[in-house]
Nucleic acid binder design. Structure first.
Lengths: 208, 208
DNA sequence: GAAAAAGAGAACAAAAAGAGAACAACAATA
DNA sequence: TATTGTTGTTCTCTTTTTGTTCTCTTTTTC
């Protein structure tokens, strides 16, 4: 693939942030204004390069209006939640380079900020959370005992476990007989969110 | 579905806020005034597009006056899947009076027609499918061995089970040591769909 | 200083949006 | 009953917006 110029890369980044903020794809004129350009034609040259690079949807003739990215990594509605990355016990959360958004039913969300992680590992299988499942997390720094939380241990490794808290210690409890419960002092643990929903695709299970 | 133009989207949003604030649906003239338009005909062109998109109720002839939105429990985008009813082993599928639609991420769907059922019972817990979970079903009359299917037994009771088929018999296999595998003749079993996705809300789990 | 990249501005075609007239179905009214 | 006004619908025509393609100039880069 032909490498992008700096300006093209810049415009692509700009497009991505635009999608996170606005529901409709921008027109060339709007992009010109936003980028401080005076000529639609010049902008279009860059867009053409992005189309050739496969980053922007080609709009066959005048069939569709607005500059839209090829990836579906934009929030189409405010119903969508950001897919942040993967969580595996014992490692930091592996953040994605390109956050994309996925439609999530209302009943799996809350009115607080939420995001989606993909679970790696088997430590919660007995709670019905399998390797490869998606977890919908409500962003929250506290939790009730018995909830399943995203916990950050020693400011480094992240894990998804049941939590039990007492004044002097915090238990992180797996749902798998093969894994051990771990005990920490409260200051070692930082709660990053609470599990409020879970999803699984059986087609991706088969393809593994 | 044809995508809305920006203006159509704007008018739809306007309608929605109007719908929330006023008891009576607006007429074309009222909408014209509110939107600062001078021509009823032009507005009507946009309304027609919204009707075609299924967002606005078609007002058959002149029978009823006012532009009214379709009920909110209809599919707003093509992302949404119909929530049909509940499935519990040993009973027919309990159909809902009012089908409503829910947003489902692309990765949990297929390009074939799909719908959503809510699972009742514990016969599949070892497959990570719990009481109250939602199942995304691809409508299909055949299945591969090892897939989880919605099977109709003797044209009456429906159930969600692993399937194993041989020329002379069909096995429906639960994922719970407390339940027994059941064997049928092929003509007793009708496959209604195949499980391709699963979802769970932990908030509804707690509220039970 | 030459080549590449970026930009300005004009011109064009198609889509989208709008204006306005005409008409039929209906409701209210005299 | 006849009339009048409102409302949804359809139509043609004009204007605006928008993507695209040019040519030419300016800026950046090596």
């Amino acid at each position: 693939m032909k490498t992008l110029t700096r300006r093209q890369r810049h415009i692509f980044d700009f497009l991505r942030t635009h999608y996170d903020r606005f529901p409709t794809p921008p027109t060339l004129d709007e992009l010109c204004a936003a980028l401080g350009m005076a000529s639609r034609g010049s902008l279009h040259k860059h867009i053409s390069a992005l189309i050739e690079a496969g980053l922007v949807e080609p709009s066959g003739g005048h069939k569709q209006t607005g500059i839209r990215l090829t990836r579906h990594d934009k929030a189409v509605t405010d119903q969508d939640l950001p897919f942040i990355g993967k969580i595996a016990a014992g490692k930091p959360i592996e953040a994605l380079e390109n956050i994309h958004y996925m439609a999530v039913p209302d009943m799996l969300k809350s009115d607080k900020p939420c995001y989606v992680l993909q679970v790696q590992g088997d430590s919660m299988v007995e709670a019905g959370i399998f390797d490869g499942d998606w977890a919908i997390i409500e962003q929250r720094s506290y939790a009730d005992n018995g909830e399943i939380v995203v916990a950050l241990i020693e400011h480094y490794e992240a894990t998804l476990k049941y939590i039990e808290q007492t004044p002097d210690k915090v238990l992180l409890i797996p749902a798998n007989a093969g894994f051990a419960t771990m005990a920490y002092r409260p200051e070692q643990i930082e709660i990053q969110g609470v599990l409020i929903g879970q999803m699984r695709s059986y087609r991706t299970l088969l393809s593994k």
